[in-house]
Design a protein around this nucleic acid. Sequence first.
DNA 1: ACTTGATGTGTACAGCGTACATGACTGGAC
DNA 2: GTCCAGTCATGTACGCTGTACACATCAAGT
Lengths: 239, 239
Amino acid sequence: MPDEPPPVIWARLSGQGRGPVRTLDYAAITTAAIALADEEGVDAVSMRKIAGRMEHSPMALYRHIGGKEDLTELMYDAVLGELDLAGIPSGSWRPDVARLARETRRLHHAHPWIGRFGYRPTLGPNARRFLETGLACVDGLGLDIDGMLDLLSTALQFTRGFVVQELGEVEVQRRTGLDFAAYQRQTGPFIAQLLQEGRLPYLNRLIVEAEDFPDADVVFERRLAMVLDGLAAGIDRRS
Amino acid sequence: MPDEPPPVIWARLSGQGRGPVRTLDYAAITTAAIALADEEGVDAVSMRKIAGRMEHSPMALYRHIGGKEDLTELMYDAVLGELDLAGIPSGSWRPDVARLARETRRLHHAHPWIGRFGYRPTLGPNARRFLETGLACVDGLGLDIDGMLDLLSTALQFTRGFVVQELGEVEVQRRTGLDFAAYQRQTGPFIAQLLQEGRLPYLNRLIVEAEDFPDADVVFERRLAMVLDGLAAGIDRRS
DNA sequence: ACTTGATGTGTACAGCGTACATGACTGGAC
DNA sequence: GTCCAGTCATGTACGCTGTACACATCAAGT
């Protein structure tokens, strides 16, 4: 039975060996891919375009990464390195978890495409660091490791859900080239027609009564506070 | 200035007019696309394959839907129609919101690919129904419409975050053909090596102390309960 | 000096979304 | 009854994608 290559990229990254000196490595490829995704959107990321940016042939990339699948994992872990975790754990779980949530949200705003990646758990160095720091923030509360993971994951899963929805609207604006006002102008007649049929009382209230241009930061904080209240209740119940 | 076609698909769906009798319509295309996504995964969904299933030419589809972009929106709204909302609102918000969350999760399990769609808000008939029912569940609590939306969205955003992560792991198993045990066997050596360096105390605790094969249903209920506790606190604070 | 393995490249293939031109068809106007 | 305008389905074609494979090139180990 032959040794299959390990499926974990992080165990497969090798240094310079025999052969021509490298003019490329996985870190540089990852950086170029991230820049491309940031500038032109995630759908524009292709092996050919990355190679073009680096002035190499597309196939050169395959000497350093297994394929596009691997590249996404490298990209994801690389941006996790941008998380600012200085000063936590501070000793009080609530501001720390809030900080983790805000940092996660900030990261999604800086790189809107990460919402499309990073579903499966990753073993990269920055993911490891994030996990360690995150669990440290909820340690010492009298919970076992499963309870700690519940606290952390609940906050972060809410955050991910919030941000993905938030950015979905931004993304469609970027792709269609319509800003929100133009979108409203286009959808307006259709919505008006729907409302005229009178079967959508809550949609009507949303349009008439809801805050017109809610500050996403404020909305996030409001909802995050509720989630954190829930975590506090969970701690009380289980410790 | 010419009338641009409305960007809302739902306003663009037309009935039979003059010309040859239709052998195709958007609903049939949507059904075929959903079946294909369920059976072969979302990445296998292509205009050509859908057309093949329907024994039509690929270009025939474009007579009925604007393009692949539109198709995803049609698919998303179609599966929303499978949500079982009978009996809600019941009059008590907490079981109702829990029900909405569980139904949302059930839907993601039935069609794992919907995690990749449905980011932007949709105006389809089933999305409208879901919004109306959802807001009705959190009405009468003394909150304004923004507060109601906070309650509902927080629960559902958490749910989406949870399910997307949950299904990310399932998806990678489907794609790689490795079950979880095989995955563990493959990653085991790498993880063991990481742990030996001794800098990852919480990863170590996760492996040693955490429940080995946690029931995802139980975990979801545990975390959902915390989120609902948070919503209850939010209601108290604001009413 | 010779072998061995790594590096980068060029070519090629199968697949994708969809623009465009063409022909078949039918409801409404005359 | 005739004609035509508009709709439906199709075939061809273009540019794009990920990547398998064969190849020349170069440096380190023997």
